[in-house]
Design a protein around this nucleic acid. Structure first.
Lengths: 199, 199
DNA sequence: ACCTACTATTGGCAGGCTGCCAACAACAGA
DNA sequence: TCTGTTGTTGGCAGCCTGCCAATAGTAGGT
């Protein structure tokens, strides 16, 4: 009950939109989709409930927007392509992957994202495209052919594995960071050698 | 509007429970948790809505029961432990994994399960324990030490990868079954060689 | 500085869904 | 046939969501 906004304030649509999104990120980070009501979302943003619908149309649409931002975030900044031997490039790629998905974001995306809202086509597409983008990055780094669908698919599979390893390390703590890194490096190397012709 | 049950019928609790569960499995297989209302569930089961609460207490509890059954199913039947070289055992393990998770069940568990209901501790535990059971099986098959937490964790990571590969193959069709199998076999072999001492 | 048109913002209404509970009725045993 | 047990029902109360007409900041023209 901070009751910060007792007076009605008029903001530009962009500012208001951002404000609501930030509040939503804050709430959805801790609790699931179904547990957070639009009333709460509105209160957290210091705004009337109807305004959520006005800006996002739907509770679900607002949620998808939150997920979209979180999912695309790590692939936004661009990285320098590593050079050197295949081993070195693979190691660099694994390093990038582990760094790009911070533990917080990992739990958020692997746990929070797939939750609450019906994981329908739209939701899947958001996550898939983000994962595919990340896979493309890795593929570039190891020197593969990003245009080849099979190569991309193989690296996406590696991505699943990597997210699993990150969870084991950061949440369950059943693997050390070194073990996870080692596991991923060896596996990625083999995947690359298996799928990519002549490397 | 088939209106099969016009007359009230009295069944044994076990039968009724099973009937409701089957109806729920049918509905949740196609649509998400939030999309299926308890009214629909009751109608599909040919039963009054209140009976769902009577037997399962909660819509969420009913859903968790459905997921639990689906998740544990593949690990129920026991398999003969393969013998032979490491390569052969690894191949057998991959084969078992691919067979145990049918495409339908795969989409159900990777997509449906993580959806709709808040993926809280209870939900995670159901899936995790099922995945851990499967990992234990694989570990036995390749000749590891099922009691070693690190080995189990490594195989669980492989499990994530395998589910990803199954999805690429069965849903996205970006990999052939042979490619998926090859990828998993090579990776599992490397994982085993990396994590299991002296094999 | 005032006024006006524009539009960001609000609050309440209607429909639907969920959990709960007291009443009802099918079936077994005497 | 009768009666007690208990599986089963239907409706009530509360909450949540999407919608929409009314309200009120605010910029821009005079």
């Amino acid at each position: 009950m901070t009751s910060a906004a007792v007076r009605r304030q008029r903001l530009s649509p962009d500012e208001r939109r951002e404000q609501i999104l930030l509040a939503a990120e804050r709430l959805f980070a801790d609790r699931s989709y179904v547990d957070v009501s639009t009333t709460e979302l509105a209160r957290e943003a210091g705004v009337a409930r109807g305004l959520l619908n006005h800006y996002f149309g739907d509770k679900r649409a607002l949620y998808l927007e939150v997920v979209r931002r979180a999912a695309l975030l790590p692939t936004l900044e661009d990285v320098a392509l590593p050079t050197g031997t295949l081993d070195e490039r693979v190691d660099a790629a694994v390093h990038w992957f582990l760094a790009s998905i911070t533990p917080e974001r990992a739990t958020y995306l692997t746990v929070r994202a797939a939750e609450g809202v019906g994981e329908d086509a739209e939701m899947r597409e958001i996550l898939d495209s983000a994962h595919d983008l990340a896979a493309g990055r890795v593929l570039e780094m190891v020197g593969g052919e990003p245009g080849d669908p099979a190569q991309r698919a193989a690296i996406r599979v590696f991505g699943e594995m990597a997210r699993g390893a990150i969870r084991e390390w950061s949440r369950e703590q059943t693997l050390t960071r070194e073990q996870a890194h080692l596991l991923l490096r060896e596996s990625l190397l083999v995947i690359v050698q298996t799928v990519l012709p002549g490397l």
